[in-house]
Design a protein around this nucleic acid. Structure first.
Length: 818
RNA sequence: GCCCGGGUGGCGAAACCGGCAGACGCAACGGACUUAAAAUCCGUUUUCUCGCAAGAGGAGUGCGGGUUCAAGUCCCGCCCCGGGCACCA
């Protein structure tokens, strides 16, 4: 049969349509097969897929198809992170309802997904903006409220003027909104709902150890950093004049005899209570200037309060200052300054002429003098510290903590940098917080049977004022569930990161109307075997998800403590050396690729151009190369399809047969290895290209029996990377489909074995010759052959052979002297 | 400042356990086919020196040292790029 030209469009549309209603990848629990839960982070339905999405999903899809072919029961779901601000902005700009806008975007993107043929089980699709989904957000909220894990308090919170809403700490990047990178967030004091993620701070940190085998080190490092556990002590200083206690937190209680002042954060309550008008004014100035400057280096400033305090361990009273570098939200909001042993304290005290009192000497050195020019921040031996003098820092910390606890003036203490998760948003397009404010009963949870609290549809979004829900009387006005009196509904909605904190559980039981899911189904599918997504969620989504999992475990809903055993963070797709963005105008859309080159080509290029964890520059010349390759495969298979169909597969019958079958089995080994360990699909595809080169070279000499055993395997190997083309060629070969449900090719070591190998011969480490010998040549025969080579002889003759190093099948190194 | 990555041809990259550096692809150049072009196919392509040539020799994986028969790979000290954290007491 003559070869056919590769018409990607008709092939891809044919199979796309043929599989449209089949839901080929629908799965159910099946205890007889090993399960594999493969998950890619769900997208925000912005309206169009670009090649960055395509790369992400293609990595997962190749793996899913491979696992299917290896006999796993693969759950591979997809859904939509459908709540969020862009829908409201679009509503303002286009006068469209956020819901319409979102749903039409979802429809469009789902169409694109289908066009690309990703192997999802669409029966499990989840949209987080549907009441069937978000009612369970509300349910989890109520469960947490019962356990004291959800609470309301007035606090200083991050306010993004652009979003007109509050942000969580995790959503503030360099002092600016994560969505508006040049908009500094403001601090506002508001009544807000919080989730007590700090209750799990210790476990979130310690369980990182269990993730080390499967999560990227840098993600874990970022989480450790964010949680920021620090172990130390709290101790009470006593104000000399009034007897007030000032509690300080320190990791270096062993240096307390070197404390030469106490410094309060400008927001510290004692400033308000005892400060003179001047001091209060100074504190306010510090607070304002810190807010104005934002993050970064600020000059240390302080002011003396006029007060003095006494250390609980004795010694002379020290002055009490306020300092702009002392944070109110960390520790106790007050510190003891030990300039001799802390660089920041040193800088501050030097600036204001506060004395430096060294109390720690290096283990093998002298105590620093009081006029030292630098702090000594390391552990050492205590001096001038009363009964503790002579102890090591570590021992002193233990004894001082014990004494503080015994004396009731202090305690061992652990402090975390992570704060509770502020989830209130003054926006419309999110999950309503299921709380009713009653003038008599206070905050009353909506009874479980009244869920969901449905987001009203009739709404006007203006982008001005406070929460849009406040303007919907039929939503706001309600009765108190407890006493029946007229009451107001909470009008804040939840942070959309709640939605994505547990969606992967819902996939396991997506249509359950009685519960968020059936625990037995979770027990079968969980944990996620492989999670794939962008590293930008390292301390947002990924830490919230871990928190939710632990919370759900403690509610008795699930038994796993971590959501995912393995995490893969893929690199970004860039274009012309920069991040793709609408404003730069360098976004490559999925549709454009599908039309110009086909989805198989787009997928192949996405995998071939770089290993998946690295950034990838989307070069159209490289895309052409991928297209050329698929086109070569198509033409090769179609022009040999008759032979492959009519002949029975046979063992190799000549040198050409042997050469291509050898290469085939070497390729099977390489690709299988890539899937099972490193995911370097770029080398898998390179191996396929090498195989193609080898086949074309010998094509005219191949026997029909060889072609019949060769081509089906080539097509199977191609399946995970270019599924539509592979499906088409499988049909061309007369095989019953679908290809994606066939078994992965079986490696045959005997066929893969090279007859002869090229061995490099070095003299003193320099390659002087390459000799070809039978693959099973023994060490001695190999050495003899190496020494006999004329090119080697010219470098060895007349010299003494000191040593021979032989690596069979690879090289011989002849070490000579003289 | 601290913690992660990374630095290999004109470009994307490969070399997985220390064993032939540059597989595979892109681009470029030369050739075949063609009236011509596209497509396709074949060939060259790290670099320098010597040679008409076949070939021979040297250098080479950010820089400087070291270990080793052998280093892109291991060790020590630097430089540069990307990312994260950063007055957290």
């Amino acid at each position: 049969m003559p070869e056919k030209p590769y018409d990607h469009t008709s092939i891809e549309l044919k199979w796309c349509e043929r599989f449209a209603d089949a839901n080929l990848f629908e799965v159910t629990e099946d205890p007889s097969r090993p399960k594999y839960y493969l998950l890619e982070m769900l997208p925000y339905p912005s309206g169009t897929l670009h090649v960055g999405h395509i790369r992400n999903y293609t990595i997962g899809d190749a793996l899913a198809r491979y696992k299917w072919m290896r006999g796993f029961n693969v759950i591979h779901p997809m859904g939509w992170d459908a709540f969020g601000l862009p829908a409201e902005n679009a509503a303002i700009a286009n006068k469209r309802h956020p819901r319409d806008w979102t749903l039409s975007n979802i429809a469009k993107m789902k169409q694109q997904h289908r066009r690309y043929g990703f192997s999802y089980d669409w029966s499990r699709e989840v949209s987080t903006c549907e009441p069937e989904y978000y009612r369970w957000n509300q349910w989890f909220f109520l469960k947490m409220y019962e356990k004291g894990l959800a609470y309301r308090k007035k606090a200083l919170v991050n306010w993004c003027p652009e979003c007109a809403t509050v942000l969580a700490n995790e959503q503030v990047v360099d002092g600016c909104c994560w969505r508006h990178e040049s908009t500094p967030v403001e601090q506002r004091a508001l009544e807000q709902w919080f989730l007590k993620i700090t209750a799990y701070a210790d476990e979130l940190l310690s369980a990182i150890g269990e993730l080390e085998a499967g999560w990227p080190e840098r993600v874990l490092a970022m989480q450790r950093n964010w949680i920021g556990r620090s172990e130390g002590a709290e101790a009470d200083f006593t104000l000399v004049a009034s007897g007030h206690k000032v509690r300080v937190f320190t990791t270096r209680i062993d240096t307390i005899f070197g404390a030469t002042c106490v410094i309060l954060a400008p927001e510290h309550p004692l400033v308000d209570e005892l400060g003179s008008p001047d001091v209060k004014a100074e504190a306010k100035r510090m607070i304002d200037s810190r807010a104005a400057k934002g993050p970064g280096d600020i000059e240390k400033e302080g002011a003396f309060t006029g007060l003095h305090a006494q250390s609980p361990f004795g010694g002379p009273p020290v002055p009490v200052w306020i300092g702009n570098f002392v944070l109110t939200g960390y520790g106790t909001g007050a510190i003891m300054a030990v300039p001799a042993h802390d660089e920041r304290d040193f800088e501050f005290c030097r600036k204001y002429g506060i004395p430096v009192r060294p109390v720690i000497r290096p283990v093998d050195g002298e105590l620093a003098r009081e006029d030292t020019i630098a702090a000594f921040p390391d552990d050492g031996i205590l001096e001038n510290s009363g009964e503790f003098s002579g102890l090591t820092s570590a021992e002193a910390r233990r004894r001082m903590c014990a004494q503080a606890e015994a004396g009731g003036f202090g305690t061992h203490a652990v402090t975390f940098r992570i704060k509770d998760w502020g989830i209130s948003r003054q926006r419309y397009w999110g999950t309503p917080i299921p709380i009713i404010h009653c003038p008599k009963c206070g905050s009353v949870p909506v009874p479980e049977q009244d869920l969901p609290v449905v987001l009203p549809v009739n709404i006007e979004i203006t982008g001005r004022g406070r929460s849009p829900l406040e303007n919907v009387p039929e939503f706001v006005q309600t009765a108190c569930p407890r006493c029946g009196a007229a009451a107001r509904r909470e009008t804040d909605t939840m942070d959309t990161f709640i939605d994505s904190s547990w969606y992967f559980y819902r996939y396991c039981d997506a249509h359950n109307s009685q519960a968020p899911f059936d625990s037995a189904k979770i027990a079968y599918w969980f944990p996620i075997d492989q999670y794939i997504g962008g590293v930008e969620h390292a301390i947002l989504h990924l830490i919230y998800s871990r928190f939710f999992t632990k919370m759900m475990r403690d509610l008795g809903l699930i038994t796993n403590s971590e959501p995912a055993t393995r995490l893969f963070t893929q690199g970004m797709v860039i274009k012309d050396g920069r991040k793709m963005s609408k404003s730069v105008g360098n976004v490559v859309s999925a549709d454009e690729m599908a039309e110009r080159y086909g989805t198989d080509t787009a997928r192949l290029f996405a995998l071939f151009a770089a290993p998946p964890e690295k950034d990838l520059d989307w070069q159209f010349s490289g895309v052409e190369g991928a297209y050329r390759f698929l086109s070569r495969v198509y033409r090769l298979v179609t022009r040999n399809a008759d032979a492959a169909r009519d002949a029975a597969p046979a063992p190799p019958a000549g040198d050409a047969d042997k050469a291509v079958l050898r290469k085939l089995h070497q390729t099977i080994a390489r690709i299988t290895e890539d899937f099972d360990s490193r995911w370097h699909f770029n080398t898998s595809i390179a191996a396929l290209m090498e195989l193609m080169n080898e086949i074309t070279e010998h094509e005219s000499a191949l026997t029909p029996g060889c072609i019949a055993s060769l081509l089906p395997n080539v097509v199977l190997l191609l399946g995970p990377f270019a599924p539509y083309l592979a499906e088409e060629l499988w049909e061309e070969l007369g095989r019953p489909g679908p290809l994606c449900k066939q078994s992965w090719p079986v490696f045959d070591a005997a066929l893969a074995q090279d007859d002869s190998v090229e061995v490099a011969v070095q003299v003193n480490g320099k390659v002087r010759a390459r000799i070809t010998v039978p693959h099973d040549t023994g060490k001695e025969a190999l050495e003899a052959a190496a020494l006999a080579d004329p090119r080697v002889k010219t470098h060895v003759d007349g010299k003494q052979v000191v040593k021979l190093i032989t690596v069979p099948g690879k090289l011989v190194n002849i070490v000579v002297k003289g």
